[in-house]
Design a protein around this nucleic acid. Structure first.
Lengths: 207, 207
DNA sequence: TTTCGTATAGTCGACATGGACTATGTGATG
DNA sequence: CATCACATAGTCCATGTCGACTATACGAAA
């Protein structure tokens, strides 16, 4: 993947918004909130301003004018440069066609699940299942409401994806729990149910 | 979720390794690589040393001894404290039962897909599908090899999860492509196929 | 025998991140 | 009618992160 000079995903959102019309950072923030962007891109004040600063430094945006309203701090309104527009289009396409190398926490934690007993693991998985079901229900409700207001499906497509992946995770969690309960991953060690943990003698695991 | 004093997942791996036996950072790094940890936790030199430093500062680990081999730099061997062991167990459990709030790139990019034409999107999705199929095949091969060497399934459980989620994504990508091709998301705008993009008049999208 | 790749072991510094903070105006609430 | 919460607009800075770099040793290839 190309090494983006500004890699924070907030910058993608900023470029997208400026492609619609010039804005000052605070308006970007408000617009993003209204559109639910913070559900998929971590938004916080400090990062937004420093990301805009970075975009400026690399010539993707330029200040158009600065104004002030009453005694509020001064506002700087930014517009995208041609290079900024090109960067946006190129970056967006790359994000779609090339899977990013990411490190979600859950699979990482699974790598150490041997440190938790099978019974306790089953209980923890139950709690996770509860949380995810709740998240899915909430997201579904939000989607239904937005659709009922006349918003096209294409604007909700990222929520569709997230719900789909969450449901896949639910399926996997239930199957994993079943495998624990049915003893397909465990053995009896002096009366206790423990993970079946055999390791090749030489640890020759790198083909 | 509890605010971990050291939140980098590398720290979890470090604590896990030190729970087995005291080590110096370079040995941790080598052991992690041998076990395939870098597939699920981003490992890099600089981060490892600063994470160990942070663990030390917060009292999760202590230096046991420092030694040197020839003219190589000095090595500091660390051991976990009781607090460090407790932190490890608590953190690991939390990661299992509570879904983390994460921001993967793909759904974020989907939120801006309106900026790419339906036809081009279909092409990009095809490329993504190709990449993911390749990743799945490679991971499967690695799992099969490890299993053939006698490694228990529980040590491969994170790879199982990742493959499962990747296959779910593939399914979704194919369905999305179908919806584009069948015109379930598009309309004709002066001869061109474009996304159907209606927005409620008032943008009253926050219930 | 020089050079190349790789293992050993760790340091450094530029940049990114995000929580906390400043300061003002305004509508609501008790 | 005081104060509380929230909107407006942005700054600051302690930490965290990670690529690049240092320096030594050693076997193999050229």
């Amino acid at each position: 993947m190309a090494n983006r000079k500004v890699s924070n995903m907030l910058a993608l959102a900023v470029l997208s918004l400026l492609n619609e019309k010039p804005m000052h950072p605070y308006e970007m923030s408000a617009t993003m909130k209204q559109r639910g962007i913070p559900d998929v891109i971590k938004l916080n004040n400090g990062s937004l301003y420093s990301v805009v600063e970075a975009l400026l430094k690399h010539g993707w945006v330029v200040p158009l004018e600065t104004s002030r309203e009453g005694k509020h701090p001064e506002r700087t309104i930014y517009a995208p440069t041609d290079a900024g527009k090109a960067e946006f289009h190129d970056w967006l396409r790359e994000l779609i066609y090339e899977p990013a190398k990411e490190y979600p926490h859950f699979p990482a934690a699974l790598a150490f699940i041997g440190h938790v007993s099978p019974q306790e693991t089953a209980g923890l998985l139950d709690q996770r299942i509860g949380f995810i079901r709740k998240n899915v229900a909430e997201r579904r409700a939000g989607m239904d409401y937005a659709a009922s207001q006349g918003l096209s499906r294409i604007f909700l497509i990222e929520a569709e994806f997230i719900v789909h992946q969450s449901e896949a995770e639910l399926k996997w969690l239930l199957a994993f729990k079943e495998d624990i309960k049915n003893g397909r991953l465990t053995e009896q060690v002096n009366g206790e149910t423990a993970w079946h943990m055999s390791v090749p003698p030489d640890e020759e695991l790198l083909p």
